[in-house]
């Protein structure tokens, strides 16, 4: 996901003057809305056998919203083709980022998403904080102590003071 995003801005950079990023966005959204309206909505929204009124249908609102998105993305696509794109200086910021930096970020997300219960709130908190500190190339040891102290303090606060349970970690039990 992140990778394609970065590519998108590079494409815009190179084809500056020809292709408006809004048109690209519009085209993607037209495709998404189309798939939603003609495949997902009919397949995954079940209609009851009988209804008192057609506006009561479970499909009514999702389809209304779907058509709204479809038509407006079409407008976005066309508008983008008519108008020349503008170049933004912000894109420069996203060039030449060390691969390790965003790989570590994705790894962090994955750890929280997949191993939160296994590692526990404290375990995953410490691991991810360390990874993300590494990603920013922090060198001071004292900062890494924070990566241990914060998850411990915060989860103890949640569990004991606020009575909000957090997982201990199935691996450690």
């Amino acid at each position: 996901m992140e990778k394609s995003e970065i590519n998108l801005s590079e494409v815009t950079e190179r084809s500056y003057g020809r292709l408006n990023p809004n048109s690209v966005l519009g085209a993607i959204l037209v495709l998404v809305a189309g798939i939603f309206l003609f495949y997902i909505a009919p397949t995954y929204i079940n209609e009851p056998p009988s209804m008192q009124h057609p506006l009561l249908s479970p499909r009514f609102l999702p389809q209304l919203a779907g058509w709204l998105v479809l038509l407006l993305s079409l407008a976005l696509l066309i508008e983008g083709l008519v108008r020349p794109p503008r170049h933004t200086a912000a894109e420069k910021l996203h060039e030449g980022i060390p691969v390790l930096r965003w790989v570590l970020m994705i790894a962090s997300g994955a750890i929280y998403m997949l191993f939160f219960e296994e590692l526990g709130a404290i375990g995953s908190g410490i691991l991810v904080s360390v990874l993300l500190f590494l990603a920013s190339d922090l060198r001071k040891v004292s900062i890494y102590l924070l990566a241990i102290v914060f998850p411990v303090v915060v989860s103890l606060l949640f569990v004991h003071l606020l009575n909000v349970p957090l997982p201990v970690g199935t691996l450690w039990e």
Binding site: S142, I143, L145, L146, V149, F150, V152, V153, L156, L157, H160, L161
Partner: peptide, 23 residues
């Protein structure tokens, strides 16, 4: 900055102690 972190660590340590006695 260093002062800030040191303070934060101190507060944190106190917090842990408080929580442990509570539980």
């Amino acid at each position: 900055m260093r002062q800030l972190i040191r303070n934060a660590a101190k507060t944190a340590a106190l917090g842990v102690a408080a929580v442990l006695t509570l539980s």
